[in-house]
Each structure stands twice: as structure tokens, then as C-alpha cells.
């Protein structure tokens, strides 16, 4: 069966099913050699890696050497912090609920940042993993423990003993709020001050080269969506689909190109959102989420994204994002 498809926003013009067409993005820019294979609209929809976006990032994290051997007095202070690593302003009630201290014996700060950005840092690289539950905007090195127990961490804070990194966390947001390297050095400071410039992340996101998910207008059967066959995430790393905990479906009043600079805000910038817990599932009925016929809700001039999140993962970027469209009538 051949249908003429109108794929709004992503492609300009009409293409035929099975065509491999040179694409233009919504701003009319030529996408170069990238090609998009158009697939039929679906009722029983199975997400594949071709539907997924591409994500890469770079981390810029300050290095503030702490005074080697001065672990008894070393203080990590974030009272000047007003924004997180993504630039989000801290609300009045926002609190840092946990500070993690990681020690890497064999990696430099540059290597750690690169591997964190690539989501490619295994636990085996972490020689020590301790935490502090602060009661104010600071933690002393002596406040850190392992599983609630004092490990006298300060006695190990000596020059040459690895790369030390502090990550500030809050239950209010996924991933790290901010982070800093504090390698022990002679001549280092006794108070590591974390402020808004201490860490930043720059994400490069491509939502326009992906293969969109096109929902059939048919009402013969419900629109089901299965994500169990996904193999890689947006970075290109292997994806354990059981870790996907939440599906976000969102409608936007701006072109998809604009969303590429706001990957960490896909929920807050949307006009309308549906958040669906999906832990323990591989499939759901989209009509149950969006209405009796999910495709009817999606207007041709609107931008829709479908994102899958792993809320327990270190990287808060969605593991999967695709554009959601309805079959042209």
C-alpha cells in the first residue's frame, strides 16, 4: 500500500512511503547528505534506534585544589550557588540533599569529565564513594561516610592520591546539581567554594535527523507503543530498556529546531505534557494516554515529542526522544 504522506515541520514537501528523501529541516536548511527513510504510519508501533535522537555533551568542571593533608579542616561550601549545571535557578525551597565524594585513582579531571559526558564511566573507576547529608550549605571532609558510617576520609586526603570530585545532588532533580574537582595539593585551599560558574554542561542535540513516529489515523485497533527493541540510547551507548522509568509526551508551540537547545527542559517548556510511569513495562496503549484515538489529538502544525527517561541514571538527558506525528488525512 502506498500513501502520500505530509510530514509537517520536519520535512518540507510530500514524500512517498519507501522513498529515501534528502531532507530539509523546519527552518528550510538543507540537511546535507542526511536522508530520512519514511515508514508507514503505525497502530502497533515499535520504537527502533532509527527513531532516536542524537545527543552529545561536553562538561566544564572547575578544579579547586584542596590543601593536601588538610583534610581535617577542608570545607566544601555552596552558599553562593544559585543555579545548577544546566543554568536552572534554585528555588527558595531548594536544598542540596546529598553531596557525593568520588575518588578516582587512575583518571584525570579531563578524562573524568569526558567520560561522564559520554555516560561511559563505570563504577570500577571509582576507588572511593562516600556521601554527606548536609544540614547547611556546606560539608566538611570529616562529615563524609560510607553507608552512614564514618570512614575518617580526611586521613586519605593526601597529594598524589587520586582525583577527588564532589557532586551535589537533590531529590528534586535527576543527575548532579553541580560538581567540582578538589584534588589534594600542597598550597591548596581549605575552603572549596562552589558557585554558578563551577560547572556547566553544553549539550549538542539533533532532533531533526531522526525518523519520526507517525501514528495511523485508523481506528480499527488501539495505538500501542513498544520500546522493548531499542538497543542504543541517544549517545549511542547500549541501552538496558528495563531502566526506562518514565515516558514524556509533550506538545510545543515552537519548531522542533528550537527544542534542540533545551533538551534538559523538555517538560517545562511544553504547552501540554503527559507523564507516564513505565517502570516494569515495555509497551503501552497510547490511546489510553492521549485519548480514544491518539492520532486525532496531534494537529499538523504542532510539534510533539515523545521521550523516554531513566530517572535513576546519572545522566538526566532522556535516553530516547523522537518526534510524534499523525498520519495526514
Amino acid at each position: 500500500m502506498t500513501r502520500i504522506l505530509l510530514v509537517p515541520l520536519l520535512l518540507v514537501g510530500c514524500v512517498r512511503v519507501g522513498d529515501v528523501s534528502k531532507g530539509l529541516d523546519d527552518s528550510g536548511l538543507d540537511l546535507g547528505d542526511s536522508t530520512i527513510e519514511v515508514v508507514p504510519p503505525c497502530e502497533t508501533c515499535v520504537l527502533t534506534d532509527a527513531n532516536n535522537y542524537h545527543y552529545s555533551a561536553s562538561l566544564d568542571v572547575a578544579v579547586q585544589p584542596g590543601l593536601a593533608g588538610g583534610g581535617d579542616t577542608l570545607l566544601i561550601d555552596w552558599s553562593d550557588l544559585t543555579r545548577d549545571i544546566h543554568g536552572h535557578v534554585r528555588g527558595v525551597d531548594f536544598e542540596i540533599e546529598e553531596v557525593l565524594l568520588l575518588v578516582f585513582l587512575d583518571l584525570s579531571p579531563e578524562e573524568i569529565s569526558a567520560r561522564l559526558a559520554d555516560d561511559d564511566l563505570p563504577q570500577s573507576e571509582v576507588s572511593l564513594y562516600a556521601s554527606c547529608t548536609p544540614t547547611d550549605d556546606h560539608c566538611a571532609l570529616a562529615d563524609f561516610g560510607v553507608l552512614g558510617r564514618d570512614v575518617e576520609l580526611e586521613q586519605y586526603y593526601n597529594e598524589g592520591l587520586g582525583t577527588w570530585m564532589a557532586l551535589l545532588r537533590s531529590d528534586a532533580e535527576a543527575g548532579a546539581h553541580t560538581m567540582v574537582y578538589l584534588p589534594p595539593q600542597s598550597g591548596g585551599v581549605t575552603e572549596v567554594v562552589i558557585d554558578d560558574a563551577t560547572s556547566t554542561i553544553t549539550a549538542n542535540v539533533d532532533f531533526h535527523s531522526l525518523q519520526p513516529l507517525v501514528l495511523s489515523q485508523s481506528t480499527e485497533s488501539p495505538h500501542t507503543l513498544n520500546w522493548g527493541r531499542l538497543e542504543t540510547d541517544g549517545i549511542g551507548n547500549a541501552l538496558a530498556t528495563h531502566t526506562l522509568s518514565r515516558m514524556l509526551i509533550a506538545r510545543y508551540d515552537q519548531p522542533v529546531k528550537n527544542l534542540e537547545t533545551q533538551v534538559f527542559d523538555l517538560e517545562t517548556i511544553a504547552v501540554e505534557t503527559w507523564n507516564v510511569p513505565i517502570s516494569g513495562q515495555q509497551e503501552l496503549n497510547l490511546d489510553d494516554v492521549l485519548g480514544e484515538n491518539a492520532a486525532l489529538r496531534i494537529a499538523p502544525d504542532e510539534t510533539w515529542l515523545l521521550a523516554l527517561y531513566c530517572d535513576s541514571c546519572a545522566n538526566p538527558a532522556p535516553k530516547f526522544v523522537t518526534t510524534l506525528q499523525a498520519e495526514a488525512k
Binding site: G228, T243, L244, S245, I278, S279, G280
Partner: peptide, 12 residues
């Protein structure tokens, strides 16, 4: 079979 809980850390 189904999916184990999402917060179970993935293995390599």
C-alpha cells in the same frame, strides 16, 4: 517475560 524495575542498575 516482563521488565524488572527501572531503578535496578543495568549490568554489562
Amino acid at each position: 517475560t516482563g521488565s524488572l524495575p527501572a531503578s535496578l542498575a543495568p549490568l554489562s
